[in-house]
C-alpha cells in the first residue's frame, strides 16, 4: 500500500516540480489518488481464502470392516452404518423455527445423513466414531447381547456442544439398526433429540458414480433484468422488465463429464460455468467418501444414494487423474471467483 502511495506521490512531484501543469492538474491527481485508495485491491479482484481446502484432523481407528450385512454375531456389527439422522423433538415446540429454517423446501438441519462407524469391539466394550455434517466425533460405550437383540449404548466425549448419547438396538438376523440420540447440553442445541435408522454399508470407491441432479445454491444468486415487450393502457408498445433471480447452478454439460476417469482439457474447463466447475471438483471428493462441511454440498450429495460420508480427508486416496483434475478445476474456480466480476485479470 505504501509503495503505491509513494509511486503516485513521485508522479505528482515530477509534474509539480517541472511546473507542467496548473493547479487543476494537481486536483485531478489528488482525486485519482482518493478514488484509487478507496477502491484499491477490491476493484481488481476478490480476495479468496481457501478455507474449503483445510480438513480438520481427528484421528480415529480405521474400522475393522466385517462384510456381513445381516447381524448374527457381535463381530458382524463392525463397519459403517449409514442412514438418516432426523429431528425427534415434540412438534409444536419447534413449529416457528421450522418455518425460519426451511428454505425453499431444503432442510439442512432437521434431516441429516449420518455415518455411524463401529471401529472396535472388545468384550462388551465398543469404540467408534460418527460423522455428521462433516464433523467427526468419537464415541465409546457398551454393547450388550440379549437372546434376540444387540443393544448399543455409547457416549461422545462431551467436549463439543453437539455431543450426546446414542441408544441403539438391532434384532438378531436383521439389517436395521435403529434408536435415539440425546444431546448432553439440552439448552444449547436447538434440536436435542434425534432418531436414527441405519443400515450397514460397505464403502466402495466407484469412479462411475453419477451426479443425479442439478445443483442449485439458493443462497447465492444474482439479479438479472429481463426485458419484454408489452403494451400500455392505450395499446402503445412499451418495454417492461422484471427481475429474474438467477441462482448459482450447474448446467447439463456436467452429466457428460467424468472427472475421475478422464483427464480434463483446459478448453473444456474454460467453457464450463462456475457451478459446473465447483460440482465436478467436489464430485471427485464425494466418490471417495469425503464428509463435506459445506452445507449446500452436503445437502446436494446426501440425496445421492451412493454417497457415504466416511472420511474427513481423502487427499491421499485420489488417483493421479483425479489429482490433476482437482488442481486444474481449482485453478479455474479460484480465477473465476477472484476476477469474474472485477476489472482485473
Amino acid at each position: 500500500m505504501l509503495i503505491l502511495v509513494n509511486i503516485i506521490g513521485t508522479m505528482f512531484d515530477i509534474l509539480h516540480s517541472t511546473n507542467l501543469t496548473h493547479r487543476i492538474m494537481k486536483k485531478i491527481i489528488y482525486f485519482a489518488l482518493a478514488i484509487s485508495l478507496f477502491g484499491c485491491k477490491d476493484a481488481i479482484k476478490t480476495e479468496v481464502n481457501n478455507d474449503f481446502l483445510i480438513a480438520e484432523n481427528i484421528k480415529f481407528d480405521e474400522p475393522t470392516i466385517n462384510t456381513n450385512l445381516t447381524i448374527t454375531t457381535k463381530a458382524d456389527l463392525l463397519g459403517y452404518w449409514v442412514g438418516q439422522f432426523t429431528d425427534d423433538m415434540p412438534q409444536n415446540e419447534n413449529e416457528e423455527e421450522y418455518i425460519d429454517e426451511d428454505f425453499f423446501g431444503i432442510d439442512y438441519e432437521y434431516n441429516k445423513k449420518i455415518t455411524f462407524s463401529i471401529d472396535k469391539i472388545k468384550g462388551t466394550e465398543i469404540i467408534g466414531h460418527s460423522i455428521v455434517s462433516g464433523n467427526i466425533q468419537k464415541f465409546k460405550g457398551k454393547v450388550t447381547e440379549t437372546p434376540f437383540t444387540f443393544e448399543i449404548n455409547v457416549k461422545e466425549p462431551g467436549n463439543e456442544k453437539s455431543d450426546g448419547e446414542f441408544v441403539l438396538t438391532i434384532k438378531k438376523k436383521d439389517t436395521l439398526l435403529s434408536g435415539k440420540w440425546n444431546a448432553f447440553k439440552v439448552k444449547e442445541n436447538k434440536i436435542n433429540k434425534r432418531k436414527l435408522e441405519l443400515s450397514k454399508k460397505i464403502f466402495e470407491y466407484n469412479p462411475n458414480n453419477k451426479i443425479e441432479d442439478r445443483f442449485v445454491d439458493f443462497h447465492k444468486s444474482a439479479i438479472k433484468k429481463v426485458e419484454y415487450d408489452s403494451e400500455d393502457s392505450v395499446g402503445n408498445p412499451i418495454k417492461q422488465s422484471y427481475d429474474d433471480e438467477q441462482y448459482f447452478t450447474t448446467t447439463d454439460t456436467i452429466f457428460k463429464i467424468n472427472p475421475s476417469t478422464e483427464i480434463l482439457k483446459k478448453e473444456l474447463v474454460e467453457n464450463l460455468s462456475k457451478g459446473d466447475v465447483f460440482i465436478l471438483r467436489n464430485l471427485i471428493f464425494a466418490r471417495h467418501g469425503f464428509a463435506f462441511r459445506d452445507k449446500t454440498l452436503r445437502g446436494f450429495f446426501d440425496y445421492h444414494s451412493w454417497y457415504m460420508p466416511v472420511f474427513s480427508d481423502v487427499t491421499k486416496d485420489l488417483t493421479k487423474i483425479e489429482k490433476e483434475n482437482v488442481a486444474l478445476l481449482l485453478r479455474y474456480e479460484e480465477n473465476a471467483k477472484e476476477y469474474y466480476d472485477h476489472f482485473g485479470r
Binding site: 503505491l4 485531478i28 482525486f31 478514488i35 484509487s36 484499491c40 479482484k45 483446459k266 485453478r331 485479470r345
Partner: peptide, 29 residues
C-alpha cells in the same frame, strides 16, 4: 481523472506479479 484511475488499477494488476511469481492471478489458468 478516470484515465489515471484506471491506469492505477492496471498498476495494481501489474503489482500482482511483483515479486516474480508464476503461480498467481492470470497465470493460475
Amino acid at each position: 481523472g478516470s484515465y489515471f484511475y484506471f491506469s492505477f488499477l492496471l498498476l495494481l494488476i501489474t503489482l500482482q506479479y511483483i515479486p516474480y511469481n508464476t503461480d498467481v492471478a492470470f497465470l493460475r489458468i
